[in-house]
Design a protein around this nucleic acid. Structure first.
Lengths: 177, 177
DNA sequence: GAGGGCATGTAAGACGTTACATGATTAT
DNA sequence: ATAATCATGTAACGTCTTACATGCCCTC
């Protein structure tokens, strides 16, 4: 984020809120101490620029920091973690009545519709300088929409008493992309 | 998991590995202490059933535990957390050469192809008693396949020098479901 | 009867979040 | 002038993972 122009911890926080938070969030309690650690390793440099009595630190990337960023970016190791409580509840929904189970699916759909609306709201102006930020934004739209449609389809099957997903092959869908 | 027949901590661990881990994982260091906490709250009961010198605890749900499970299942609050390092790197990929950026997308695709293969491997036999476990398994197949296809499309656009996703509307795709 | 994998945990510590404190700046 | 919001952090706590310890059981 510093490389993209963020100068302070708060600045980083705001940019995260408007972009990566949908797939990688960060809280103030993470950001500020991490900046100090990066400084200790000389990957960023810090300049004090207080506002009145209030201390304030402005950061910039060092050459070593730029190199470390590049190393990280080209490292093919990719962490992936997911905690989806909706799916977890759905997994155990055989213990519920049909109506209660349907309630879980509806709650899931509402959640992902809200995410979709949020992603649209933060929006994105296409800028050829930042193609990839736009690409990840499109990913967010696409996957949330897929999930919403999946929920809708499941709701229909449950309401109409069909065996869910029978005879369809989502996982093979070459669909109109 | 106890309600579905798991009797020991290890048993829970094995079942998680074969099912919910794709959207909600759990490590031994979580499972064992949590069982003790549940016992302290009288939501499960514990019977000691050692194997030789080795202590061993067998658990079952109490009536209060069953009620608490039901309460949780019908509560519409659904936690959702995601950490996707591939997307995070892609977000910053404007700092890379075209070839390096493409490397990220390929690594992402490989990761999700591996997940897809794993989900297929653990497999699932449809059982009308456990419809919803099957439904979440189908979700896993479907979403991983969507991601793989998204990566493939992005790779094509990048290789052929097109503006990614131009003129297409994933997020609206009514596609062949 | 020895080796390897299965089973049952524990300890330590990394990681992240929530809640709070407080000063500066802006709006009314 | 006062209130609201922006900005800059810190402290405390909860959660989760990794690594380890160790005994049992099965196979050869």
């Amino acid at each position: 984020m510093i490389r993209l122009g963020a100068r302070t911890g708060y600045d980083i926080k705001r940019r995260v809120e408007a972009s990566t938070r949908f797939f990688w969030s960060a809280s103030p309690g993470q950001i500020y101490p991490e900046l100090r650690r990066l400084e200790a390793h000389e990957l960023v440099s810090r300049i004090e620029d207080p506002r009145g009595d209030r201390p304030r630190s402005v950061y910039s990337l060092t050459a070593a920091g730029e190199a470390a960023l590049h190393e990280w970016l080209i490292d093919p190791e990719l962490a992936f973690e997911l905690r989806n409580e909706g799916l977890l509840k759905l997994f155990f929904a055989d213990a519920l009545s049909d109506e209660e189970a349907l309630g879980i699916v509806r709650a899931m759909r509402a959640q992902h519709e809200a995410k979709l609306a949020e992603i649209r709201r933060v929006g994105f102006v296409y800028n050829p300088e930042y193609r990839f930020a736009y690409i990840t934004w499109r990913y967010g739209l696409g996957i949330q929409a897929w999930i919403v449609q999946w929920c809708e389809e499941l709701e229909r099957d449950l309401v109409e008493g069909r065996v869910p997903f029978e005879g369809r092959a989502h996982e093979l869908a070459a669909s109109a992309r």
